[in-house]
Amino acid sequence: METAQAFHRLPEILLAAIGRQPLGVMVARGDLAMEVGPERLTEVQEEILWLADAAHLPVVWATQVLESLAKRGMISRPELTDAAMDERAECVMLNKGPYIGQAVHTLDDILTRMQGHQRKKFALMRALHWS
């Protein structure tokens, strides 16, 4: 997911692709933020997570995760918070850099600790009542 058009058509895309393996949803957050605006990115990411979860598809969280740590060896507070939210995806993609080992270790530490605080959302379906 890297364009506003793809986001708006995600339910249609998922329905057309279901049954084809392997299948997952990658959220290219940097590109998507340029398309929908940074102020809407969090909301759009949330909707993508919900739709992918409803379709029982894994999500790859990508683009700029711990980027300043991987590239410059320094981490910012917003990156820490952002990385903590990555726990909700099945996979997190880091960009390469001279400090990638440190970024992997930091991400592992954050995600391990966050597992105790967050649970991936599950769609709750009402029981079907057949006549």
Results as ranks from 00 to 15, higher is better:
E2N: 05
E2M: 12
Q5T: 15
A6D: 11
F7E: 13
F7L: 05
H8T: 12
H8I: 14
L14T: 01
L14I: 08
A16T: 03
A17M: 11
R20Q: 13
R20H: 14
P22W: 03
G24E: 02
M26A: 07
V27N: 10
A28W: 01
R29G: 02
D31S: 00
M34T: 08
M34D: 03
M34A: 05
M34I: 03
V36Y: 03
V36R: 00
V36L: 08
P38W: 07
T42R: 13
V44P: 05
V44N: 00
Q45A: 06
E47P: 04
I48N: 10
L49Y: 06
L49D: 05
L49R: 04
L51W: 10
A52V: 06
D53C: 06
D53F: 03
A54G: 13
A55L: 03
A55S: 08
A55T: 03
H56T: 12
P58Y: 10
V59D: 10
V60K: 01
W61V: 05
A62Q: 04
L66F: 00
L66I: 02
E67K: 14
A70W: 15
K71M: 09
M74H: 13
P78K: 11
E79R: 07
T81W: 12
D82C: 00
D82V: 01
A83D: 04
A83R: 00
M85Y: 09
M85R: 07
M85D: 06
D86T: 05
R88E: 09
R88C: 01
A89G: 07
E90F: 13
C91E: 14
C91I: 12
V92G: 00
V92K: 00
K96S: 15
G97V: 15
I100Q: 02
G101V: 10
G101P: 09
Q102K: 13
Q102F: 02
V104R: 00
H105E: 15
H105K: 15
H105P: 10
T106C: 08
L107N: 02
D109N: 15
I110G: 11
R113L: 08
R119M: 10
K120P: 13
K121I: 08
K121N: 06
F122D: 04
A123E: 15
L124D: 12
W130M: 09
W130A: 08
W130T: 14
W130I: 08
